[in-house]
Write a protein that binds this DNA or RNA. Structure first.
Length: 781
DNA sequence: CAGTGAGCGAGCTTCCGCTTGACTT
């Protein structure tokens, strides 16, 4: 039996460390927290100083039992959890739940996972910092109180099964308010003038593009300017060269990794974390949930060697990056390759791409600045003194880190195009090829992507690296927000062209407002947000977290008592909850749309138990009100009376066919025709309210025909089994299950024997579908 | 991945932070 038991938080870390230490040490992991407040009750004794009722969750029982056994037989237990608030609390909970006597355990921390760092840590043990533990307890209890008092209030006042919390509700607020800005944005336009000159050099002509810094408010002003340029000569008045430089971005943290993987690889926030976790578990990268930009000394030495070897010594510039983000606790290193001399790693395409990104970012962060030379050319106009054209170019004098990596930006359309300029002289006259004045519209701030929302949350200090991805999925699971793409609308703009002293004007079109994979607030999200804003502005304040974090810091420093901090927060908050419960009406975002022409009753749009709906009539009318759910794409504040009334017209009968009724309805997946208990989707362009019997029959026949086309082969002996043509090629269908075809088989020539064999080997498809269903139903709960 | 097509019924839902697992021979 080992004399020493070391406990860390993560099993992958435990494995690595065990290798560094001798036989005298057993290294185990706690798998994060081992105790927590009870899952289904508030678990805080409010009248007894907010005394928390900790318990060991079912899934942690075996972990604790195992550790307890090992601890009993060990001479010393080394609590080596992370050096931050949560880590300190984990150590304390371990000491408590393993029933360790004070002389039996020691608390140690290390910042690098190297043999030296760990041996040094063991030489400098300390005791558990109880104030830090109290700070964590305050954080935990506050979040529990807020979440478990606000959520039930929402169940009563808005809709069951909703949730609210210090982090998620503010994330939703960000999305709701950004949407309001986008909707309320008034685009204004102005005219941007650019000129294309021709530069002759050694018999070649190269184009030179220049722009007018001034923009014109109206078409008339733009035209007037082009008029003055008729017949003008354009002469270079000044050439100014300025050195410039670009510096690399710091190594990845969780949030910056999520942003770059989103921009460069198109990964969702959760995908990034899943893939990074795999790389971590296979030892390829360091820990992926971190807010630190810091690289260990050993990592920097490895980076230096790699850069020298691959690019040369002049490309090395070792840098220490300071962490700026609010509330950073720096328990880990930045995210980097474990071995920087390994350029490629990962089991599949996603892992490989993410690893490459991490490798490049890490290497680039230790490389020299890129040196640039910026040139600005001022071009005078002979007919006016007021305006000048400016042409600018940028030349890279020394590539530096740009050889490896450049961080992407969130701006969708960046104006670049400042490359190399042709050789030019002062006083040189430039022949004008063409001048254009183009109408350009101002744009609102962009809607959030998952990753840009994480960035914003990090700036506000809301949430932690371990919770960014879960929070993003929670607000979508509660349907406060949805991630989707929307098509833009066509917008006309005009363009004036001056060429050969003639001005032409034309109307052009652009698509505006198109969005891809952005977060949009739902009706529920907006209604819950206004409810919380109305009654709990303090908690919804963007600085609420920062404010309570300062108090937690004071608890950690021993300046404040944790239960008093909670008390000061809780009672006013609780009173407000009670008061809202008593005084506030049901909060449904109700809006009166008008009157139903048939009955004269009021028509309302509001949130119901199942989401957005329309109600005709009042709850206490003699005739019960009529209800209809709103459709996908419709929303509480934009639906019109007419659209609302249309919802009551379906399902409707559209005649008969083959002696059976044709019924038109709208289901989860759009409009459909039901006939003889079979469903036929309606094409997008068909209006379900207007469709005729003839058209319905046509749709049914077309579907029957395409179903017939799908059959490649069927067997008389067993009509259940068929070879079908699917969207992704041929497959075998047996009853309701589908099976992939091996590539070497010709689908036309499959025998029943072969088909049965494929089915009985029962691979891939049936299985993968089953697991998928299982996970999605889990999510649905 | 190959198709899908519901309507409230009596008890439950919920927070934020740590961390990955998945009964036995």
């Amino acid at each position: 039996m080992a004399k020493n038991l070391v406990i860390v938080e993560s099993p992958a870390k435990a494995k690595t460390i065990e290798g560094f230490l001798g036989k005298e040490f057993t290294v185990k992991s706690s798998f994060g927290h081992v105790r927590d407040l009870p899952k289904n009750t508030i678990g805080v004794d409010i009248d007894k100083g907010f005394d928390p009722d900790y318990e060991i969750p079912a899934d942690k029982k075996p972990v604790v039992a195992d550790l307890r056994k090992l601890a009993k037989n060990a001479e010393t237990v080394w609590l080596a959890t992370d050096e931050d608030r949560e880590g300190e609390a984990i150590s304390w909970h371990l000491a408590e739940s393993l029933k360790l006597d004070p002389g039996h355990y020691k608390r140690i921390v290390f910042h690098e996972i190297t043999k030296n760092a760990i041996l040094n840590a063991i030489k400098q043990p300390r005791s558990i910092d109880q104030n830090l533990v109290y700070a964590q307890q305050a954080r935990r209890v506050l979040d529990r109180l807020v979440g478990f008092e606000l959520s039930p209030l929402l169940w009563k006042k808005v809709k069951p099964a909703l949730s609210a919390g210090r982090v998620q509700s503010v994330a939703v607020r960000l999305i709701v308010e950004r949407e309001k800005e986008v909707q309320g944005f008034n685009a204004t336009s102005s005219y941007k003038v650019s000129a294309m000159f021709l530069v002759e050099h050694n018999g070649d002509t190269t184009p030179l593009k220049a722009e007018l810094p001034k923009r014109f408010k109206t078409r008339e002003e733009a035209r007037a300017f082009l008029e003055t340029c008729k017949g003008a000569t354009f002469k270079i008045e000044d050439i100014e060269k300025k050195p410039g430089k670009k510096s690399p971005a710091p190594p990845f943290t969780t949030s910056t990794l999520q942003q770059e993987a989103s921009r460069k690889l198109g990964f969702s926030v959760s995908r990034t974390m899943v893939v990074a976790q795999k790389l971590y578990e296979s030892g390829k990268i360091t820990y992926m949930r971190t807010d630190s930009h810091n690289l260990s000394g050993a990592a920097m030495a490895m980076a230096r060697e790699e850069i020298e070897k691959n690019f040369g010594a002049e490309f090395v510039k070792l840098r220490k990056y300071a962490t700026k983000s609010k509330g950073a606790q720096e328990a880990h290193e930045a995210i980097r390759p474990t071995y920087i001399n390994v350029h490629n790693a990962g089991k599949d395409a996603a892992e490989k791409k993410l690893y490459e990104l991490i490798w490049k970012r890490t290497i680039a962060s230790q490389m020299s600045d890129a040196l640039l030379e910026k040139t600005n050319i001022t071009i005078g106009i002979s007919t006016t003194k007021k305006e000048k054209f400016i042409a600018s170019g940028e030349v890279i004098k020394f590539e530096g880190f740009l050889k490896v990596y450049l961080e992407s930006s969130d701006d969708e359309e960046e104006e670049n195009g400042t490359g190399l300029l042709p050789p030019l002289k002062k006083e040189q006259v430039l022949p004008l090829q063409e001048m254009t004045a183009t109408e350009r519209y101002t744009k609102p701030l962009p809607r959030y992507t998952e990753a840009s929302l994480v960035k914003k949350m990090e700036e506000l200090g809301i949430g932690r690296p371990s919770t960014y991805a879960p929070t993003i999925s929670t607000i979508q699971k509660r349907t406060y927000a949805i991630k989707e793409s929307r098509e833009g609308v066509k917008r006309a703009y005009s363009q004036l062209t001056l060429s050969r002293d003639k001005i032409n004007e034309k109307e052009m079109y652009e698509i505006t407002g198109a969005d891809k994979n952005k977060l949009f607030p739902t009706d529920i999200g907006q209604v819950v947000n206004s409810f919380l804003m109305e009654h709990f502005a303090g908690i919804m304040d963007y600085h609420f977290t920062a404010k309570v974090e300062r108090e937690f810091d004071e608890i950690a420093e021993g300046k404040k008592q944790w239960s008093l901090v909670i008390k000061d927060f809780y009672w006013p908050f609780h009173d407000k909850v009670e008061q809202t419960l008593k005084e506030s009406e049901k909060y449904s975002g109700q809006r009166l749309l008008g009157q139903d022409p048939a009955s004269g009753r009021n028509v309302y749009a509001r949130i119901g138990k199942f989401g957005s709906m329309i109600q005709i009539g009042e709850p206490d009318d003699v005739d019960k009100p009529r209800f209809a759910s709103m459709r996908k794409g419709q929303s509480l504040d934009s639906i019109t009376l007419e659209e609302a009334l249309d919802l009551f017209k379906l399902p409707r009968k559209a005649g008969e066919y083959e002696g059976k009724e044709l019924v038109i309805g709208v289901g989860r997946f759009g409009p459909y025709i039901r006939h003889d208990n079979k469903f036929y989707s309606l094409p997008k362009e068909e209006d379900p309210l207007a469709i005729t019997t003839e058209k319905a029959v046509e749709v049914i026949e077309a579907k029957r025909e395409s179903d017939r086309q799908k059959i490649i082969k069927s067997f008389d002996e067993d009509p259940e089994i068929r070879v079908l043509k699917g969207r992704w090629g041929p497959y075998i269908a047996s009853g309701k299950k589908n099976f992939k075809l091996p590539k070497n088989l010709n689908p036309e020539e499959i025998t029943l024997e072969e088909a049965k064999k494929i089915i009985s080997s029962g691979t891939s498809d049936a299985k993968s579908r089953k697991t998928k269903r299982a996970t999605s139903s889990k999510r649905g709960k």
